[in-house]
Structure formats: C-alpha cells, structure tokens
C-alpha cells in the first residue's frame, strides 16, 4: 500500500522525532502517501500509515479528517484551494468562489468533467496581505480578480 520510496521519505520525518515518538510524523506521512495515491486518502491507506507508524488507526484518522489538506474524495489534477477567511472574505472571496464555480461549471468539492480542476474552500493560508488569494499546488496567487482568475485557470493543463 505504501511504496518503498514513500517509506523512505516517511523515515526521514520519523528520524526527526525522539525514538518511540514515530507517530509524530503522521501528518507528513499522510501527505507523502496521499501524493502517490491520486491525491486522496482512503481508509486502507490511513490504516497502512497508522500501521507503519505503529499508532492506533483511529488516531491517524483523527489527523486525516482534522486538516483540510487531506482529501477523502476524488480530486482533479489541480486543486484550487481558495481562502474564505476574514481578510479574503472582506475582499470579495465569496464572489470569486461563485465566479469560479460558474466558470468551471462545478460546485466546490466537485471535479470538472475533464478531471482537471476542483475548487476547495480552505481556511487562512497566511497571505492576508495579498487577499483575496488561492493556492494551486505549491504556488500562491494573490490579489485575485476575475480577470486574473481567467488567465490562471485557462492556462491550467
């Protein structure tokens, strides 16, 4: 369930914590394993991570369901993670979400028919200075306008 390569990556994180505290690496482990499973987690995967880190499966499940950067449903090739917390909201994030939904033809949480994009509303990403903003992959896009969104989204492949 977990590839050897992923195990190696997880071990790097395990080594950062004291011996016997390997479960502290659960967040990174889930992230690593999610990346190689079409960006989503399933019960089996969570179980496998818990077993690998020798922790109760429910404890891994708690972490996996607490943070929104873990996906439990299918996602598109790109996930647009749009912030809807206070700064972005005051700067019109809600309108942008509606705009994105209309433009892509899918509600937040759903994937476009071509499997390319999905939109996810997330909590503050710490870029209030550039509100409203969203994140695609590792990249932040700030001071968004409808025009800017058209440019960014149309260029997604």
């Amino acid at each position: 369930m977990i590839s050897n390569q992923a195990k190696k990556q997880i071990d790097v994180w395990v080594a950062k914590y004291p011996i016997g505290r390997q479960s502290s690496a659960v967040m990174e482990a889930l992230k690593i394993v999610q990346a190689e499973n079409e960006n989503r987690l399933s019960a089996d995967i969570i179980q496998a991570v818990a077993d690998y880190l020798d922790m109760p499966s429910i404890a891994a499940q708690e972490v996996a369901t607490f943070y929104e950067n873990y996906n439990h449903k299918s996602v598109g090739k790109h996930t647009i993670r749009i912030c809807h917390n206070i700064s972005c909201m005051l700067n019109g994030a809600d309108d942008l979400v509606k705009y994105l939904e209309k433009k892509l033809g899918v509600k937040t949480g759903k994937v476009t028919k071509n499997g390319l994009v999905n939109v996810k509303k997330v909590e503050c990403l710490g870029a209030c200075v550039g509100a409203p903003m969203f994140q695609i992959g590792e990249q932040y896009y700030e001071n968004l306008t409808k025009q800017k969104i058209d440019e960014i989204v149309d260029n997604l492949k």
């Binding site: 109760p56 499966s57 429910i58 404890a59 499940q61 708690e62 369901t65 607490f66």
Partner: peptide, 27 residues
Amino acid sequence: GAEIGGIMEMGGTGRGEDLKIEPFLAE
C-alpha cells in the same frame, strides 16, 4: 480507550461543527 482499555478505539474525527466521536470505520 486510550488510557484504561489500552487500545484507542474511539476518536474524534473531523473538527469544529463536524467533530464526530466514532471508532475507526466499521471495525
């Protein structure tokens, strides 16, 4: 479960309004 039973069986999944106390899936 975690302290007396010795196996953590129940846990809190989700958060905020959606927090649920439940065991791991259908186990």
